[in-house]
């Protein structure tokens, strides 16, 4: 399998969303690469895929799957795997990623949310079997993204970073490090984000995500919601800088999935991410992900 970042540059990219497609088709935009949600393009044809095919000629494209459900106890949906494979054969994305989560229940119902796994040997075995199945079906390495957690399970026997390190070691998959998810999960489930960064297998990081979150107050406490509906916060930019200091330059993606602003606003965030990458490249890194 090819190196995870072989074709996606170690620069700042943007998650391509429907309202901005016209902007990208009309003029070259200052982003080094684009990422799309795979499931938005599982169509037989039509204008959306035609636009993507056109942009693919000008930008390296990464595919981020949101529905494969790597944590499903009964394995992966073979039909979905085959449709994703066909998309990847057509688009030849530079990176393919999925989530450490589940979204398909045992009766086959797709819940359209990234749901939490207990960090147990049982769940680890399921996750690794499913990652193996996906990598075999796609004929390539995939990256798996650390989750944003709202609920934890008392039965967990491993820390999240141990769970991830084991999955990476056993399957040879790469890691999509979402530093907003680290920030959100650290607050919601009570761990230290810097300790987490020091412990995850950073050598496996093939891509980093940044996004915005919101605070939701309940009767007695509050949770951070991984809402992707506002700018990246300072705390998350700091985590990005801390991660890059350890990994060296890797592809960094700015994600916005709702309350989508005009493109210019997101380009400013892409530029901010690129500035951090440039500083990392100039200052050298503690370790090199490659």
């Amino acid at each position: 399998m090819s190196a995870p970042t072989a074709r996606i540059p170690r620069r700042a990219g943007l998650g391509l969303r429907q309202p901005h497609i016209a902007d990208f088709l009309a003029a070259a935009q200052p982003v080094a690469w684009l990422e799309v949600h795979s499931e938005n393009h599982l169509a037989d044809g039509g204008p959306r895929n035609a636009a993507l095919a056109a942009l693919r000629r000008d930008y390296p494209v990464s595919c981020h799957g949101v529905g494969l459900s790597l944590g499903s106890v009964d394995g992966l949906d073979r039909g979905h795997l085959a449709r994703l494979r066909a998309l990847y054969d057509w688009l030849e994305p530079g990176l393919v990623s999925e989530h450490i989560a589940w979204s398909v229940a045992e009766d086959g119902t797709y819940l359209n949310d990234l749901l939490p796994l207990p960090y147990t040997e049982e769940a680890l075995a399921v996750l690794c079997r499913n990652i193996d199945q996906a990598q075999t079906a796609f004929g390539r390495q995939i990256l798996v993204e650390n989750p944003s957690s709202y609920a934890a399970f008392p039965q967990s026997t491993l820390a999240e970073w141990q769970f991830i390190a084991e999955a990476v070691a056993r399957t040879g998959c790469g890691l999509l490090l979402d530093v907003n998810n680290i920030h959100v999960s650290a607050h919601n489930t009570g761990f230290d984000a810097d300790a987490y960064l020091a412990s995850v297998p950073l050598a496996a990081v093939g891509e980093i995500h940044v996004a915005g979150h919101t605070l939701h107050r309940f009767a007695e406490g509050c949770l951070l919601i991984d809402s992707h509906d506002r700018p990246v916060t300072d705390a998350v930019w700091r985590l990005l800088a801390a991660a890059l200091a350890r990994t060296g330059p890797v592809p960094v993606l700015v994600e916005r999935d709702s309350e989508i602003p005009p493109l210019a606003e997101l380009l400013a965030e892409v530029a901010a991410a690129q500035a951090l990458l440039d500083r990392t490249a100039a200052g050298g890194a503690l370790t090199d992900a490659a």
């Binding site: 819940l111 359209n112 949310d113 749901l115 709202y150 609920a151 934890a152 399970f153 008392p154 919601n188 009570g190 939701h216 309940f218 009767a219 007695e220 406490g221 509050c222 949770l223 919601i225």
Partner: peptide, 25 residues
Amino acid sequence: ALVAGDTVIPAERLLVHRNNAQLSL
């Protein structure tokens, strides 16, 4: 009953996922 809670109780934590699933669909 399966979820850990502290000042934010399990029902409220589940509510985040319930909202994500229902409102997105």
